[in-house]
Amino acid sequence: MISDAKPDRQTWGLDHQFDSVDQQRESSFLGMWIFLVTEIMFFGGLFATYIVYRGQNTDGFVAGSHELDITLGAVNTAVLIGSSLTMALAVWAAQTDRRKATVWFILATILLGGVFLGVKVVEYGAKFEHHLVPGPEFHWPGPEKTESVQMFFNLYFLMTGLHALHMIIGIGILAVLAWLAWRGVFSASNHNLVEGVGLYWHFVDIVWIFLFPLLYLLGRSG
């Protein structure tokens, strides 16, 4: 998906359909950006659903968002921003031919991604304990209509779940990337893959930057 670039010392990873390395590089990036546009549309559909249902069930959504742990959410936001930084540094290291640094920064990104998912597991666990997971076990003691609050948690789990799925896929790709970097595949003239994965990782972060206020913060002051 990222690039058809194969490490080949003789042709510098140039595939037969391209005339030049530049053409291949530009194509890879354009492809990656278009892929991210499709991702935006995918999450856009979810955000639209959220906004519509928030309008219909405002009281339930406000009550639901009060049940989320804002501290853990904020910690996770910081962790993800940190992982974006390490990812950017990994790209920089690959561009400047620093093999070991590339590997370490990728590993750091994986680690931070893992921390994020760990915190998410803790948060999900708390929802199970409080019977806030949609389904037959769901129980809402407050005055708001159960369906309204449950709708909030339906969307909470769908949105954060799909985001977490993107994180897991990203960590998988990063693991392969770390291995490739360790083997010395990337160099100042061949780092398209690192940059492409970097774009993907930043995108996943940005989705969270939208999810966090929408799910945790909105309606909390009121």
Partner: peptide, 20 residues
């Protein structure tokens, strides 16, 4: 009737149970 707390008239408590 079905979701009494959704839109409460000003000055009243959310006392009414749902008839859903």
């Amino acid at each position: 009737i079905l979701n009494p707390t959704a839109k409460i008239v000003a000055g009243y408590q959310a006392l009414m149970p749902t008839y859903q």
